[in-house]
Design a protein around this nucleic acid. Structure first.
Lengths: 147, 147
DNA sequence: CTTGATGCAAATGGTTTGCATGTTT
DNA sequence: AAACATGCAAACCATTTGCATCAAG
């Protein structure tokens, strides 16, 4: 829908919701914007932030990320068993993960529309699918032998 | 496809793969079969097993569940932030989770077939979607006011 | 000035691991 | 007998929380 939001837009939104604007929050937003569609863990974020703000604590990153999640600004993603990762909510997409080689293929949100329609029709459920992980076997592994 | 497998079939499969058959493994399989399509956490399993086998340790349940996962006998499911849960691989289905009230609605695997076809056609990816969690808003919350 | 946000350290919860012992094959 | 599986306790990792202090409004 919209292009990339600026930090200021996001910050104004937070302020409008009665939240205070702090260095930590600004920094988390800045790193998320900077990361584009990459998935960053809380620790990744903390490390990046520490380059300029060494005193922002990891627990604050967690608290900030929670806040931004509730505000709908970011999306939490669980891939596999590792730590949660985060990215701006707008970069919504899904993942096809190959069980053989582990490759991760991005799947556009549009691929899900048939499912969304069906849930709406059958269950009255308004689906806003976030980060789905669809397992399977990629083209390469189907052809040759996997590792 | 097939009906419910018996413990003996599953056990024979394990043995055929060179694994040893122990009380703990038998017990985990028994509880999984007994649970039908319910999702049990490792701790749930341990508690159930303890009624008859008080000396089966939680860590053994974890190890067993890992083994059965690798053998393709069970599927690990992450719902939200809680502990992982498990169920027999055959009872495959997906979940629609309401962001407002948290209700979990089961979605039949068939709902996903359009997506599977599309991934096959566009990417040559053979999808075997396991446990998808599709967020959204349920019919009730769309009507009334959410909490 | 008031309330919300932070740093820190400590607690938590789920899961994994090292190792000596017991059990399956 | 040999290899594998288990019990136990301790380690581990990601995340959360209590509380005193600090800073945004």
């Amino acid at each position: 829908m919209s292009g990339a939001p600026s930090i200021d837009e996001l910050i104004d939104g937070l302020r409008a919701d009665g939240h205070r604007i702090t260095t930590a929050r600004r920094a988390v937003l800045a790193e998320l914007l900077d990361a584009g569609d990459q998935h960053l863990s809380a620790e990744d974020l903390a490390d990046l932030i520490h380059r300029r703000h060494p005193d922002v604590h990891l627990s604050t990153v967690y608290r900030t990320v929670d806040l931004l999640d509730q505000a709908g600004i970011l999306t939490e993603v669980h891939v596999g068993q590792g730590p949660s990762t985060y990215h701006l909510a707008q970069d919504s997409h899904h993942h096809a993960v190959c069980d053989s080689c582990g490759q991760i293929i991005e799947v556009p949100a549009s691929a899900l529309t048939p499912v969304v329609s069906r849930l709406e029709r059958d269950l009255g459920f308004a689906a806003r699918p976030r980060h789905l992980t669809i397992n399977g076997t990629c083209a390469t592994c189907r052809a040759g032998s996997p590792t």
